[in-house]
Nucleic acid binder design. Structure first.
Lengths: 116, 116
DNA sequence: TACTATACTTAGCAATACTAAATGCCTAGC
DNA sequence: GCTAGGCATTTAGTATTGCTAAGTATAGTA
């Protein structure tokens, strides 16, 4: 990212979206990166150094749980994350807060329109 | 604020809204705090320690300019901030980025709806 | 062999909102 | 006159989170 402003807008949002994705379906780091990129029209192209710390935080908070998955016929493995009950609750809570928040900001701009 | 998540959502947004308010009309710190509170349905209740650093940053970047105003018949004065041309340009740029950004996030949630 | 894709880890930096406290002027009530 | 509270600004220190950048390792392919 080259724009400092947009970088700040992402604070909190990226973690919210990662949690949401895992709630929809158990997933793992590398896959989440491609999903986020695709589902955001290339807007959220996370590097590993951004995504993995998010996963560790979510796990520390008990919102997701990890388990190692041996891939068929290989020794390399993936760390599959699944949402916990607390994670699903928190995902809904954050979605609601995001909606209220973004509507407040939108309304703020609209209030300024009918000025003379 | 007691909620860490919502605190993060504000990153970047508060500065954007302060710049927008000053673009609409020259103002000063103490007044901006009450305006922000009122125009956001009590959602953005900034403490001084949050607002004043925002003003100093905007001034450092040349987006707003300050001038001391003697109040009539008093010695105490207010620091009036006015938007510069660069500030007006930047305000429009940020509003556009915010709109695109929030629409991307909204679309992200809607994409998840028509699943089974 | 070398390159690419997959997959995870970690150290250190930058930006911004928060708490908390301090300063000073002015007005109103006692 | 004195005190409490509203107006108005300043600043020190903390926490959170996204970023860059580098490193580790396996598997497939040219």
């Amino acid at each position: 990212m080259e724009d400092r402003f947009e970088q700040q807008l992402k604070k909190g949002v990226l973690e919210m979206l990662v949690l949401e994705l895992i709630c929809r379906q158990p997933s793992y780091g590398y896959k989440l990166i491609t999903q986020l990129k695709q589902m955001s029209q290339e807007r959220f192209q996370l590097k590993e150094g951004t995504l993995y710390p998010i996963l560790y935080r979510l796990e520390d908070e008990g919102l997701i749980a990890a388990s190692w998955s041996q891939r068929e016929g290989r020794t390399a493995s993936k760390k599959i994350y699944t949402a916990t009950d607390a994670g699903r609750l928190e995902a809904r809570r954050r979605q609601q807060i995001w909606q209220d928040f973004s509507q407040t900001v939108t309304a703020f701009y609209q209030e300024g329109e009918h000025h003379d």
